[in-house]
Amino acid sequence: MASFSDQALSSVQPGDSILCLSPVFDAAGSEACAQLHAIEPPEQVATLLITYTQSPRRQLALYETHLDRLPSAIEILHVGADRRPNTAPFNNTAAHESPTDVAIRRVLSSSDLTSLGTLITNQLDDWQTTLQDRQIVVCFQSVTVFLQYNSLRETERFLTEVIKRCADTDAVAHFHMDPKAHDEQTIDALRRLFDVVLECGET
């Protein structure tokens, strides 16, 4: 296991999967997330964000806070979301850029793993074909919330498939998890799935 540091993050390679252990809303976790998005210049990054608790607009605001510029493409899968339009303009005022159109897809049920898995796979496949010059970054917010709706066994199975698909497309995939919300047995069971485990903040 690596502690959060520039050195640990610099060792991350395309296709790697990273488990970010940090308390919810912890600044160090947000910083690690931002650095993983900045593995390449923003114009060379395409971000796939899977979010449960945070609204897409709040997640984009966090990106604006921690990144100088937004990635060139952002696809958000909002799980457990209500029915709203599938696109949302976002003005990256900090970078003085034009409004960015962010694609948003909704998965209404938090336990609908089939739909979520299909959307993730389809997006990765699409970008692998259409954005061959971009580094795909996948951010999963969060494993802790995922476990509220799915058993540990289901979680292991689902994450294994997602990690494999990300590796197949050379995506850098990081998964947030609050270690204070789980016992050591649960953390140890999931830890082994990842190439890198980062301890961020007060874990």
Rank of each mutant, 00 (worst) to 15 (best):
P99A: 14
P99E: 12
T100C: 15
D101K: 09
D101W: 13
V102T: 04
V102Q: 03
A103R: 14
A103G: 11
I104G: 00
I104C: 00
I104T: 00
R105I: 08
R105S: 11
R105G: 07
R106C: 06
V107H: 05
V107C: 13
L108Y: 15
L108S: 14
L108E: 14
S109N: 10
S109D: 10
S109A: 15
S109I: 03
S109C: 11
S109W: 05
S110K: 11
S110D: 09
S110P: 04
S111V: 11
D112L: 03
D112S: 11
D112T: 10
D112F: 01
L113K: 02
L113S: 11
L113Y: 02
L113D: 07
L113W: 02
L113H: 04
T114K: 13
T114W: 11
S115W: 00
S115L: 02
L116S: 02
L116D: 00
G117Q: 04
G117M: 03
T118V: 14
L119G: 06
L119K: 10
I120Y: 02
I120E: 01
T121G: 04
T121D: 03
Q123C: 15
Q123E: 12
Q123N: 14
Q123P: 06
L124P: 01
L124G: 08
D125V: 07
D126N: 15
W127G: 09
W127M: 09
W127D: 06
Q128N: 11
Q128C: 15
Q128T: 14
T129E: 12
T130A: 13
T130V: 10
T130Y: 03
T130K: 08
T130S: 09
L131C: 07
Q132G: 10
D133F: 11
D133S: 12
R134C: 06
R134D: 06
R134P: 03
Q135R: 07
I136D: 02
I136Q: 05
V137W: 01
V137D: 01
V138N: 00
C139G: 15
C139N: 15
C139A: 15
F140L: 01
F140V: 02
F140Y: 04
Q141F: 05
Q141I: 03
S142L: 02
S142Y: 01
S142G: 03
S142R: 01
V143T: 11
T144R: 00
T144W: 00
V145H: 06
V145Q: 07
V145W: 04
V145E: 08
F146W: 03
F146T: 02
F146D: 01
L147E: 04
L147D: 02
Q148M: 12
Q148I: 09
Q148W: 09
Q148S: 14
Q148E: 12
Y149P: 09
S151E: 07
S151N: 07
S151R: 06
S151C: 08
L152A: 12
L152S: 10
R153F: 10
E154Y: 03
E154H: 07
T155Q: 07
T155F: 02
T155I: 07
T155L: 05
E156C: 05
E156M: 07
E156F: 01
E156A: 06
E156D: 11
E156L: 09
F158G: 09
F158T: 10
